[in-house]
């Protein structure tokens, strides 16, 4: 535990490494992008609905602290099942994204945040907003000055345990290929 704390402290205070990257570093520009890839329900939810292809759009802006950005995500996923049960989701959330201080052309970013998900449940035709928490990891590689390609993984928890009669939250794991642009 002590070792982990020291590593985290070293990462967070590694300003010298970032200082070397600021010149010509397009990470600090506002960015917009698209992603798509498989989205898998987890735990009990996976027994009721199937995995699906998901996709979405996102934007990122810099903060006063160089390695940290704020992201805004909007995506869509539709999970069917062998029976009539299906779930459509449109998660909208914001994340704080921290770029790990590795001095390589590849960016490694961890992120966490929250928002809300518009969810439609069939066949009962119920739709509502669910409080949503997000955690994830991104790897991206710049292709010149404007374009980046990458891969992202997101864990989404749709929080429902606060609702009366609920004993489950919704858990989903999304993996996506992303293409995004430095503005």
């Amino acid at each position: 535990m002590k070792r982990i704390a020291i590593i985290i402290l070293l990462i967070l205070t590694a300003q010298d490494l970032f200082a070397q990257r600021i010149r010509g570093d397009y990470f600090n520009r506002p960015q917009v992008g698209l992603w798509f890839g498989p989205a898998a329900p987890l735990f009990e939810v996976s027994e009721e609905v199937d995995s699906a292809l998901a996709g979405g759009a996102y934007a990122k802006v810099s903060t006063f602290y160089n390695p940290v950005k704020i992201g805004l995500d909007l995506s869509y996923q539709h999970h069917l099942s062998a029976s009539l049960t299906s779930i459509k989701m449109v998660p909208i959330y914001s994340t704080l994204q921290y770029r790990l201080p590795f001095n390589t052309p590849i960016n490694f970013v961890v992120k966490g945040g929250g928002g809300a998900t518009r969810i439609w449940f069939e066949p009962d035709m119920v739709s509502q907003w669910d409080l949503t928490f997000v955690g994830g990891f991104e790897v991206s590689f710049p292709l010149g000055r404007w374009i980046n390609v990458g891969m992202r993984t997101d864990y989404l928890m749709l929080y429902e345990k606060h609702l009366e009669g609920s004993d489950l939250n919704g858990h989903f794991f999304n993996v996506g290929l992303s293409l995004f642009f430095n503005l």
Partner: peptide, 26 residues
């Protein structure tokens, strides 16, 4: 963008409805 995120946060606190995931197998 910060206003959007603030609005999103305030909106999330008011999320209410039916327990969808608990009812998936019911």
């Amino acid at each position: 963008m910060r206003k959007v995120i603030l609005l999103l946060f305030i909106f999330c606190l008011s999320c209410d409805g039916d327990p969808i995931f608990s009812n998936l197998d019911k």
